[in-house]
Structure formats: C-alpha cells, structure tokens
C-alpha cells in the first residue's frame, strides 16, 4: 500500500496538505488580482504591511491554533487582549518600568488561561462556556481599571512603536512583526518536534484514545489554554505598541477573527488536524482582504466582514468534502444518518 492521495487532479499531494495549499493559492490569487487591478499594489511592502497591521492577531491566532488543535475553543482571547492593553497603559501611567509591566501582563494572561484550562478539565465543562465566562470577566475587569481610553506615553513603548526594521530597499517591518515571527517559529517547533505538540494533536484526534494510550491529557489540555492566554496577553502588548493606548473597547470580536484565521488556514474545528503555517496564511488572507478594500476606496469596511463570512463558508464546506472522502472504514458510517431510537423523532 502506498500513501493515499487526493483523488482529484493533484497527484502526489497528500490530502492533509490540501486545505493549506488552497489557502496559499487563494492568497496568491488575491495578491495577483490586486496587483492587476490597483496601481502600486504588487509590492513586497504590501505583504509586509499586512504583517505590520496584524502582528497582534497573528500571535493571538497562534494561541488559538493550539486550543483548536486540541479540540477546544477559546472565546476569551479578545477580552484578554483588551485587558492586557488596559493593564499596560494604566501601570505605565503610574510610572512602572516598561519591561516589568510586560512581564506582569504576560504572567496574568498565562494564569487566566491556566485557570480556564483547569476548570475545563477538572470540572468537565464545555470550553465554550468556560471561555465565554472568561471573556465577560476579562472585559469587565477592563472597566474596573477605567472606562476611557488611556494613552501610553512611556518612552520605551513609543520608541518601540515607532522604530522600523529595514529589510532591504523600500522594505521594512516593525519589531512587533519580528516578535510575531519568533512566536510562530517557536510554536511550529513545539507542535511538530516536541511531545507536548504531538500530544496536542492526539488529544484533538481522540481524547479517549489518548487517555488509554497513556498520554498526559490533563496536562496537555490545561497547557493549550495557558498558551492561548499567554499569546493573548502578548497580542495585547503588541496591540499597545500599535495603538499606543489601553482601552476596554480594544479588540472587540478579535476572538472571532482569530478563529476565522485558524479555520481559513485549514485547521479543523473538531481538532486534531491542521498546521500552524495555515494559520499564518489565514491571518494574511484576512489582512489582504482589508488591504484590497482600502485600495478599492469606495467600499465600506464592512465588506471585509462579508468576504470573511463567504470565505468561512467556503472553507467549512471544503473541509467537510475532504473529511468525508477519507478512505477506510469511517467513511461508510459517517455518511449514514443514524436510525433514530424509536419514537425519538417526535
């Protein structure tokens, strides 16, 4: 027997890479289409700008990828980002050292995630509900700090926010992008070359089996929420660089953008299948949609949402098609409608 491949026109490409390749193709197609349609679009800096404008989303989406791969969901990330900007801004205004503030914020994010993960695991509660509670909690905590936007004037932060890293002629990025890139590389390494990473995949594939195979499921589940909390806090710090303010209304709905990026990147919401590289592409696609709409000029920014919505539908259907065409025994069963227990269809 040999490796099974997609029964479509791409011989030799393992099925597992198809969603990621589709997303990559979509990104290239959008870039080319934009380049043809708009003057000054097809430059490297456009891509880099997408990274610059979405570095915080990238970091948050990396954390979300861990959670979704393990079969969970984290709705609290947007609120934790907002809370992080709020804590950062208020502590800096109180004259704290910038690095101490960043460290503290990261610890707070990690602890929040750890707490939610522990509740999810030990009390066997749906991650949806626990992180929904976490979302309200973190958002509400923002307003105990202040109801208005707090500007950041700390010199370390403003220098950091305004510095640029040159990458060549007419190409530059911000330090935030570098941080985002490091996070992506570390996360990809963890997912593919460490036991923790593989246990994340195993848990998402079948928690019951993972348990019977003697894998540390409890530790892993709690770890992914801790990672997500940490990434959210780091995303919050990056957003503080970007916005130079802390505000309780920052990052409203960012959890949904992060989930969208992960799904568009080809990761299955049921867990166990997907790649971090897909998430990077997902963030890029979301960012590029925004860029195209701003180039178009006449379209309202709400069109971003419409396109994201359409894309999500397309990708969910695509995953379904790929999922059900799997070879082997699960196919027959999964496609059949179960016979309802007698009378249960009333």
């Amino acid at each position: 027997m040999t490796s099974r491949t997609v029964p479509t026109g791409w011989p030799g490409i393992p099925r597992k890479y198809v969603p990621v390749l589709v997303t990559a193709g979509l990104f290239v197609a959008m870039f080319v289409a934009g380049g043809i349609r708009y003057q000054g679009f097809a430059t490297g800096q456009i891509v880099l700008n997408v990274f610059i404008d979405n570095a915080f989303l990238l970091v948050v989406a990396v954390g979300m990828t861990f959670v979704i791969l393990a079969g969970g969901i984290d709705l609290s990330v947007g609120s934790v980002v907002a809370l992080s900007t709020m804590i950062t801004a208020s502590l800096l205004n109180d004259g704290w050292n910038a690095y101490a503030v960043i460290l503290l914020v990261l610890v707070i994010g990690g602890v929040l995630g750890l707490g939610m993960g522990a509740i999810i695991h030990y009390f066997e509660i749906q991650p949806f509900i626990v992180t929904l509670a976490g979302m309200f909690l973190a958002r509400g905590l923002c307003y105990t700090i202040g109801t208005d936007s707090i500007p950041i004037t700390n010199p370390t932060f403003t220098t950091f926010a305004q510095s640029a890293v040159p990458l060549g002629p007419d190409l530059w990025i911000t330090p935030s992008v570098l941080i985002g890139a490091v996070v992506v590389l570390v996360a990809a390494y963890v997912l593919h070359y460490t036991r923790l990473g593989r246990t994340v995949y195993a848990t998402g594939g079948s928690e019951q089996s993972a348990l019977l195979m003697g894998l540390p499921v409890a530790r892993t589940k709690i770890a992914v929420y801790t990672i997500s909390g940490f990434c959210s806090a780091l995303g919050g710090v990056l957003l503080s660089f970007y916005m130079l303010s802390g505000y309780g209304l920052h990052a409203v709905g960012m959890e949904l953008d992060a989930i969208a990026a992960v799904v568009i990147g080809g990761t299955l919401l049921t867990g166990g299948t997907g790649y971090l590289f897909g998430t990077v592409l997902g963030v890029l696609v979301l960012g590029l949609i925004q860029t195209i709409i701003s180039f178009e000029g006449t379209l309202s920014s709400w069109w971003t949402r419409i396109f994201i919505g359409v894309l999500l539908f397309v990708f969910i259907v695509l995953q379904r098609l790929i999922g059900t065409r799997r070879t082997g025994w699960p196919r027959l069963r999964s496609r059949r409608v179960p016979v309802p227990a007698a009378g249960a269809d009333d």
């Binding site: 195993a202 195979m213 299948t273």
Partner: peptide, 20 residues
C-alpha cells in the same frame, strides 16, 4: 481500536515514547 485516527501510523505506534 483506541488509537488516534488523525495521526500517522508511525506516531500512533510511538506517541508518548517517541525517540528524542
């Protein structure tokens, strides 16, 4: 069968005791 269908055959044999 109590294995993880989403992982490769090799991983299913070794997961938890992978050579490192």
């Amino acid at each position: 069968v109590n294995l993880c269908p989403n992982l490769s055959v090799a991983e299913n044999i070794f997961i938890g005791r992978e050579p490192r």
